[in-house]
């Protein structure tokens, strides 16, 4: 075991899988010699050579298309999109091509690609760098969308993603990269995709979150505890496909739910979760399911960022609303 930050755990997962499977390839803009703009791929080119860890020209759609060609030949490409806001440049490759390869080929071809990309607010990067676009990805059947909230999960989820035979969008929240360390095993291990984790058990209300909002939810739960409110926190870990069973089980226990996401309010993961809960467990609910989200604007400019981003106070406030309903 070693103490690792989330970025170290991600680098370690890439190293483990590059070593484990010669078909794993890491590429993207500045990921080679430079080791990535966040150093996620630091040292990997030196260790595994320029054939397996390589820089590409600045061309996101080309990176996505290249990954598809390689994937159809048995490789397991792990391309990096430098910031997830740049995904619009490669949307066709992702949603139009790799997500559909298996379906459109009548199950004769597949695209085992893991696209890694940093995203998320709170580190004073402007729009197109910080945007939470997981809802956009989750809407495309054929894709899995994974968002770790801590170093241990990041390593295990990334290894599982690379080993998965379908395309995975692996989103790394920039604020979590170096904000804390975890005990992370040095060997390979998997954290199952599509499986949420009950991070904190509670009986009065369920907080459902992912990414950086898990920390905010835990912090809110700790404050609520002081007021005698026992909050359960679910870390989704995979936002598509959703682990409905874990959600519904918790809802049946607590009867009250607040869904937390950093993304804007409209048409996102939280809205989907609310819909699923009311379809499956409405008779167990003691109050309407509420959401804590960012407002429906383009990602905020730096001076307004702290106002724009949801935080633990917003969560406590919504919990009080569902408790006092």
């Amino acid at each position: 075991m070693a103490q690792m930050t989330m970025i170290q755990a991600i680098t370690d997962a890439l190293r483990v899988e590059l070593k484990n499977d010669e078909n794993v390839l890491v590429f993207g803009e500045d990921v080679g010699q430079n080791g990535g703009v966040f150093r996620a791929t630091e040292g990997l080119q030196a260790e595994f050579g320029e054939d397996r860890v390589f820089d590409t020209p600045l061309a996101e759609s080309g990176i996505g298309g290249l990954a598809i060609g390689l994937a159809t030949q048995g490789f397991r490409p792990v391309p990096e999109i430098q910031f997830f806001g740049f995904v619009y440049e490669v949307m066709d490759s992702i949603s139009g091509q790799m997500a559909r390869m298996r379906y459109r080929s009548g199950n004769t071809m597949n695209a085992p690609i893991t696209i890694r990309s940093p995203f998320g607010g709170g580190v004073h990067t402007p729009e197109m760098h910080a945007d939470s676009l997981e809802g956009l990805m989750a809407q495309q059947p054929g894709l899995k969308v994974v968002i770790p909230s801590n170093p241990y999960d990041a390593k295990g989820l990334l290894i599982s993603s690379i080993r998965d035979n379908d395309p995975v969008i692996f989103l790394e929240h920039m604020k979590l990269y170096r904000s804390f360390r975890d005990e992370v095993p040095e060997e390979a291990y998997e954290v199952e995709l599509g499986k949420a984790k009950v991070t904190r058990e509670g009986t009065d209300v369920t907080l459902i979150a992912y990414g950086a909002m898990v920390q905010a939810s835990v912090k809110a739960a700790e404050e609520l505890e002081k007021n005698g409110v026992s909050a359960e926190v679910i870390d989704l870990r995979t936002v598509a496909p959703l682990d409905i069973d874990t959600i519904v089980e918790s809802v049946k226990k607590t009867g009250r739910v607040v869904v937390v996401q950093e993304a804007q309010r409209v048409a996102g993961i939280a809205a989907q979760i609310v819909a699923e809960i009311q379809e499956r467990a409405i008779l167990h609910l003691e109050a309407p399911v509420l959401r804590v989200t960012a407002p429906d604007t383009v990602y905020a400019f730096t001076q307004a960022e702290e106002v724009w981003l949801p935080n633990h106070n917003d969560i406590v406030e919504k919990v009080n609303d569902v408790i006092n309903y």
Partner: peptide, 21 residues
Amino acid sequence: LSGSSPVTTQVPHAVGIGLAC
């Protein structure tokens, strides 16, 4: 390789296959 309706997507795909070769 299975084709797709938005034209030209096959070019980077074929380039990926070339890299595989």
